[in-house]
Amino acid sequence: MRIPRIYHPHSLAIANDIALSDDAANHVGRVLRMQPGHQLMLFDGSNQVFDAVITRVDKKQVLVNIVDKREEDLESPLNFHLGQVISRGEKMEFTIQKSIELGVNVITPLISERCGVKLDKERLEKKVQQWQKIAIAACEQCGRNRVPEIRPVMNLEEWCSESDGGIKLNLHPRASQSINTLTMPVQNIRLLIGPEGGLSQDEIDMTANYNFTDILLGPRILRTETAALTAIAALQVRFGDLG
């Protein structure tokens, strides 16, 4: 049986006895039906992996003992920030899950003119909490030991105006540049992915004012979730650790 990887939200140390979080305990105890003596791999966001043994399982909690730790850095050399205009239904969840598998460090959900999702502040906050859980699950699956941050929902222009010292990219079907023609050294990337209906012309003009570079992925029009993952993968192949 494959040893499950479980995220723990607090710092871990060898020889400690800890109780797993409620979500982790439910998964380990009720879904996987693991028992005392079974092994787990835990990670706490510190880029370390902790070997643990289950010592107790009951209806309320799962207790484990930490027996070893090791460094395990699977992070991309790119510092990758994805600004994704919120898409409908499971598309947003899919984009978050797969972009994290591809190495994105930070994801900011965005509201634009043509955003098809209309939720009040309270429901958006609950969505962000749900998306953060998806991020954790993606890390558990793909082997990453740092959990990317899902930031609070932002207005498109507010996000575009931020600066992190890197290159800012915006996908555009009539752009003159492609990812392969980007020649400058790239370490920090801020990638904007628009909504299913695309950005308005005013929004495209606005991104130019904040020094975004328009790039073209190819001759075909891609859905928003396809565009995000294609661009991330292409950038990781050219500047990161894929391929």
Rank of each mutant, 00 (worst) to 15 (best):
P4T: 03
P4N: 04
Y7I: 04
Y7K: 07
L12C: 08
A15Y: 07
A15V: 02
A15P: 12
N16R: 14
N16F: 06
D17L: 06
I18Y: 03
A24N: 01
A24P: 01
A25C: 05
V28R: 09
G29F: 11
R30Y: 05
V31T: 15
L32G: 06
L42I: 14
L42G: 10
D44V: 14
G45A: 07
S46R: 13
F50E: 05
D51L: 05
D51A: 04
A52T: 12
V53M: 05
T55I: 08
D58I: 11
N65V: 12
N65K: 13
N65H: 15
I66P: 06
I66Y: 14
D68Y: 08
K69I: 08
R70T: 15
E71C: 07
E71M: 13
L74D: 00
S76W: 03
S76P: 03
L78H: 01
L82T: 06
G83I: 06
G83F: 05
I86Y: 01
I86K: 00
R88M: 02
R88G: 06
M92E: 01
M92W: 06
E93S: 14
Q97M: 03
S99L: 11
S99Y: 14
E101F: 07
L102M: 07
L102H: 08
V104P: 09
V106S: 09
V106D: 04
I111E: 05
S112Y: 03
S112A: 15
V117R: 10
E122K: 15
R123M: 02
V128R: 11
Q129I: 15
Q130E: 05
A135S: 12
A135Q: 00
E140Q: 12
E140P: 13
Q141R: 01
C142S: 05
R144W: 05
R146W: 02
R146Y: 01
E149S: 14
E149G: 05
V153T: 13
L156H: 10
S161Q: 15
E162C: 14
G165T: 10
I167M: 12
N170K: 03
N170S: 11
L171A: 02
H172L: 11
P173M: 15
R174T: 10
S178F: 13
L182Y: 04
L182R: 05
M184I: 04
V186C: 06
Q187Y: 08
I189L: 01
I189D: 02
R190F: 13
G194Q: 06
L199C: 10
S200N: 00
Q201K: 13
E203P: 09
N209R: 15
Y210V: 06
Y210L: 11
Y210N: 13
F212T: 01
L216H: 12
L217D: 07
G218Q: 09
R223H: 01
T224S: 15
T226G: 03
A228G: 08
A228K: 10
A228C: 09
A234S: 08
L235A: 03
F239Y: 10
F239C: 00
G240N: 06
D241H: 14
G243M: 08
